[in-house]
Amino acid sequence: MKGYNFGFLDEASKREIRRKILKAIAVPGYQVPFSSRELPIARGWGTGGIQITLSLIGPNDVLKVIDQGCDESVNAVNIKKFINAVTNVKITTDTTKASIIQTRHRIPEEKMNENQILVLQVPYPEALRVFEPSEFETRRMHAEADYSRMWLYLYEDIVTYREISIGARYPVMVNKRYIMDPSPIPRWDIKKLNMAETLYIFGAGREKRIYAIPPYTSVEPLEFEDFQFRVENFMGEKCILCGSDDTFLDEIIDDSKGKRIYMCSDTSYCNKLLISKKVLYKR
């Protein structure tokens, strides 16, 4: 794309965002305010994540973008096209080949390593907002680690539903200090945040917040001794395409027969398995 700086944002803006990222890494789980830039994409469509990616990316990076686990969704494709147009970097769908992965609502199934960064798009960065509308008050709670009302919220949830009913956006305690919203990833992905090799950076464009989980940081889902955190249970169902029973599955109602079928939510991983099986089969 002509007439734009590499990565669309000017160097001063990138440096500013990188400074905020460094602060976020220095205080794991703490939400750092940043001045969100205008992009040729509407806010709320991943602009927080895109700005992080654009300020980190270099010509030799390899980018993967997924939306709810899928590389080919309209959203993911648009973001890839835009970033490619302003950087010309290589694009991949292979989790193991990417140096930066931008994602919405999922963490890839394949384990990521120390040389990779996962950038998560965040719609609502404040975990405490579900019970406290005042920003002043939520900031005070974070500053003083005064989290009893978050626990009270879970207590009430248990009293009402006999379990913790939160699906996505399950609150976590980062580095034994800050309660953090992990973005709307399923509970399935929460365990991947704990003591991970990979740097996770979270960006909320509309709400103008950046936060991070540096590698090897403890991330614990909030739980009571007798009501523990549980991941989704697929009751032994398998992916209809690759046959996996150890991945996060999307439930789809088959229109023609009205039957429930299941598919890997991480489509590139599913493809990879499928291809390797076909190769085996051909042999």
């Binding site: 009893s148 009270l152 009430e156 248990i158 009571f224 001794e225 007798d226 009501f227």
Partner: peptide, 20 residues
């Protein structure tokens, strides 16, 4: 918040983490 929850809040503040 439930009447019990109002009391639970105080217990939670004192580090109680067992619903039963």
């Amino acid at each position: 918040i439930s009447a019990g929850g109002n009391i639970a809040e105080n217990l939670i503040m004192a580090e109680w983490r067992n619903i039963e």
